[in-house]
Amino acid sequence: MKIVADLDLCQGHGMCEDTAPEVFRVVESEDGSYDQVEIILHEPDSGLHEKVDSAVRYCPNRALKIQ
């Protein structure tokens, strides 16, 4: 599993961080606009896959993808 984020789409809602905090973190952006997702674990081990799937599914902007 490899996760990628499309930052053009991210609005920093933090659904992913809420669902899988081991993998995602939402951080402030430099210009003060929307906070942005930061992927802390790009290739999480299998124990986290279910959580990551939910995080990807619940992103309101479909900004996350599993490759």
């Binding site: 920093g12 809602h13 933090g14 659904m15 961080e17 809420d18 210009d31 003060g32 929307y34 906070d35």
Partner: peptide
Amino acid sequence: VETERQQVRFMSDGLRPK
């Protein structure tokens, strides 16, 4: 536009999971 971008962030903050 620099201000407006921050104002929409305020909205996004108000819509966090909690």
